[in-house]
Measured scan of single mutants.
Amino acid sequence: TTQFTVHSPEQAEQWKEYAKQKGLEVHVQKKNGTWHVTIH
């Protein structure tokens, strides 16, 4: 599991796309103005 924080919805979307291409599961949670992205 990879977990990191991004600071814009655009970055979060890019990671979603990346994960989809790799066939991975991605979870994005918005918290205090940042987005926590978890890739399984």
Rank of each mutant, 00 (worst) to 15 (best):
F4C: 05
Y18V: 04
T38I: 12
V28E: 01
K16Q: 10
A19R: 01
I39N: 00
H7I: 08
H7A: 13
Q14I: 11
Q3V: 13
Q14P: 03
Q3Y: 13
N32E: 10
I39A: 00
P9Y: 15
T2F: 15
F4G: 02
V37W: 00
A12N: 01
Y18L: 06
K22R: 12
K20L: 12
H27M: 09
Q11A: 14
K22G: 05
V6P: 02
H36W: 14
K20V: 09
H36D: 05
V26M: 06
K16L: 13
V6A: 05
H40D: 06
Q3L: 08
F4M: 06
K31D: 09
I39M: 06
G23K: 05
G33K: 05
A12R: 02
G33V: 02
T1N: 08
L24F: 12
A19K: 01
N32H: 07
T5Q: 10
K30R: 08
E13P: 01
W35Q: 01
S8I: 03
H36Q: 14
G23E: 04
T2Q: 12
E25V: 13
H7E: 12
T38D: 02
E17L: 10
V37R: 00
T2C: 15
P9I: 15
V37T: 01
I39G: 00
Q3R: 12
A12H: 02
W35V: 02
E25G: 07
V6I: 04
N32G: 12
T34E: 14
Q14V: 10
W15R: 00
G33E: 08
K22D: 03
E13N: 10
I39T: 01
K30S: 08
Q29A: 11
H27E: 12
A19Y: 12
T1L: 13
K31V: 15
L24E: 02
T2S: 11
N32V: 03
Y18F: 09
Q11C: 11
V37L: 04
W35P: 01
K31W: 10
Q11N: 05
T34A: 14
V28N: 00
S8E: 04
T38W: 07
S8N: 07
H7R: 07
H36L: 15
T5L: 10
S8G: 06
Q14T: 07
E13F: 07
T2K: 12
P9G: 10
V37D: 00
K20F: 09
E25Q: 12
H27A: 07
K16G: 04
N32Y: 06
A12I: 08
T5V: 14
Q21R: 12
Q3D: 06
F4E: 02
K22N: 14
F4W: 05
E25A: 11
G23I: 02
K20W: 07
T5M: 10
E13D: 09
Q29S: 11
Q29F: 12
A19L: 07
S8H: 06
L24Y: 12
H27D: 11
K20M: 11
H7V: 08
K31I: 15
T1D: 06
V26T: 03
E17S: 08
K16D: 03
K16C: 06
E17Q: 11
K16M: 13
K16Y: 11
W15L: 10
H40C: 06
V28F: 07
Q21P: 02
A19Q: 01
H36C: 13
H27G: 04
H7L: 10
W15Y: 05
F4H: 04
A12W: 06
W15A: 04
K30D: 08
L24W: 14
K16I: 15
N32A: 06
Q29Y: 13
P9S: 14
Q11D: 11
F4Y: 07
A19G: 14
L24S: 03
T34P: 01
E13M: 10
A12P: 01
E25F: 11
G33A: 05
H27I: 12
Q11M: 12
L24I: 07
K22S: 09
G23S: 04
Q21Y: 09
G23V: 02
G33M: 05
T38M: 07
E13Q: 11
T1M: 12
E10M: 07
K22Y: 14
I39K: 00
K20D: 06
T2G: 06
E13I: 07
T1Q: 09
Q11T: 07
Q14F: 15
